[in-house]
């Protein structure tokens, strides 16, 4: 057996599905967030793998952009979680099911 690009793509798909499962199953906002990060990472892996396969550097550039967006998202997301925690003393998303602060 030789290593081909399909291995990477299947791995990325698996990681993505695990991330989805994490979002669905956990109720701690932080862990849900981490699952989303995992999904982003798996997409990045796909980008880089396909970039290698097609010989186009654009895939890596796209991965870099995804990282930037992820960084921005984490900053804001964690700030929101901290802000929510200050009010609710909880990071459990199920307790945030109302429209009142």
């Amino acid at each position: 057996m030789t290593l081909t690009i399909s291995w990477f793509l299947i791995l990325a798909a698996a990681l993505f599905s695990i991330g989805v499962a994490g979002v669905l199953i956990r109720r701690n906002a932080l862990v849900m967030f981490m699952s989303i990060e995992l999904m982003l990472n798996s997409v990045n892996l796909t980008f880089v793998a396909v970039s290698r396969e097609l010989g186009l550097i654009e895939g890596q550039v796209a991965a870099l952009f995804v990282m930037v967006v992820a960084a921005a998202e984490v900053t804001i997301g964690l700030a929101i979680i901290v802000a929510v925690f200050r009010r609710k003393a909880s990071a459990n998303v199920d307790e945030l099911a109302e429209l009142r602060g």
């Binding site: 989805v20 979002v23 199953i25 849900m32 998303v93 199920d94 945030l96 099911a97 429209l99």
Partner: peptide, 13 residues
């Protein structure tokens, strides 16, 4: 619209 984030996420998935 239950407010349950995870049920929304489940819908998306």
């Amino acid at each position: 619209q239950s407010g349950q984030v995870r049920s929304y996420a489940g819908g998306i998935a």
